[in-house]
Structures are given as C-alpha cells and as structure tokens.
Computed example of a mutant assay.
Amino acid sequence: MSVKQQVLEQLTRPVVEGLGFIFWGLEYIPQGNRSLLRIYIDHEEGIDVEDCATVSRQISSVLDVEDPIQSNYTLEVSSPGMDRVLFTLEQFAVYKGHEIEIRLSRPFEGRKKFKGLLNGVEDSDVLLVIGDEEYVLPFEQIEKARIIPRFDQIDG
C-alpha cells in the first residue's frame, strides 16, 4: 500500500466505521489531473445506494478539510459486490475455498496473473491451488486480487 493510500485510509476509515459500516478497502488511482478514489464499504445487512451516498457526503467533507489529494479527483463509494477485491490477509483467510484472480506487481515463476482456488493464508503468504499445484504467493507482491463469483445453476 502506498503512503498516499495509507493517509487516505487513515482519514476515511474512521468516517466509514463511525457511520456503522465496515471499511472494506480503498483504491487510489492517480490519472494525471483527474484521479479516482474508490472506497468500498460493507454491512452485514448489505449496502444500498443511500448508504453509499451518506458515506460519500461525510467523506467528501473530511477530504475537503484535510485536502490529501492535490489534483482534481472523483470519489466513488461502493459495495464490494460479489466480485469483491481482497485487500488484507484477513479477507483472504475468510474467502478460503473461493476461486480468485490475482495480479502480482512483479513476475512469480514467470507470470504475473494467477487464477485458482484460494487455499488460505500462511504467515504473510497467500496459498493458491491451480490444477494439481499449490502456489505460495507473497502478500506484499499482490497488486490486486478479486473473487470470481459463482453462479451455480438453480433447479426449478
């Protein structure tokens, strides 16, 4: 996580949690003179558009005062959704047994993209099973990881 992302999390996490939501994670994507700050919130009863709007208004107020992003930016507040991005080792541990996609910041055994079954966490590594092989991927090298939703057929 970059220093900028750490600062943004320190400013926004207390706002999200103070409103009774779970701070799932954030993405900060600098794009020249128009950056994107995407904050994911969750709740055991789910998230709706009004929840996102409420959190967005509160975070906007804090960011206006603190001014951590010098350029113009777009703020998005969203539910993590079914294809949620995983940000922490704790989140990886919770989703053990799910299929995920992982993109690394640098190649591991000649590749940067992996897709397989999440087999848990060991120390600061993520265990991923692809076919008959288990890969031990260092957490600090994971650039992005996302759950692959399953839409099992429903009889009826």
Rank of each mutant, 00 (worst) to 15 (best):
P30H: 08
P30T: 08
Q31D: 12
Q31W: 05
Q31R: 14
G32W: 11
N33T: 14
R34M: 13
L36C: 06
L37R: 05
R38A: 13
I39M: 07
I39G: 02
I41V: 15
I41C: 10
D42E: 11
H43P: 05
E45Y: 12
E45N: 12
G46E: 12
D48W: 11
V49W: 13
E50I: 09
C52D: 11
A53E: 15
T54C: 04
V55Q: 02
S56W: 11
Q58M: 10
Q58V: 01
Q58T: 04
I59N: 03
I59W: 06
S60M: 12
S61N: 13
S61P: 01
L63M: 09
D64K: 04
V65S: 06
D67F: 10
I69L: 10
I69N: 07
S71R: 12
N72Y: 12
N72D: 15
E76T: 08
S78L: 13
S79G: 11
S79K: 09
M82R: 04
M82K: 02
D83E: 12
D83I: 08
R84K: 14
V85Q: 09
V85M: 07
L86T: 07
L86F: 08
F87H: 05
L89I: 07
L89A: 06
Q91G: 06
F92V: 05
A93K: 11
V94I: 15
K96N: 06
G97M: 03
H98D: 07
H98W: 08
I102D: 02
L104A: 07
L104Y: 10
L104T: 10
S105E: 09
S105T: 11
F108C: 03
K113S: 08
K113L: 09
L117D: 01
G120M: 03
E122F: 06
D123K: 12
S124L: 02
D125K: 05
V126G: 01
L128V: 00
V129F: 00
I130P: 00
I130A: 01
G131H: 03
E134Q: 13
E134G: 00
E134D: 01
E134P: 01
Y135N: 01
Y135P: 02
L137D: 04
P138K: 04
E140R: 13
Q141L: 15
Q141G: 00
I142P: 07
I142L: 09
E143F: 13
R146D: 04
R146T: 14
I147P: 06
I147V: 14
I147C: 03
I147N: 02
I148S: 00
I148G: 00
P149N: 03
P149F: 10
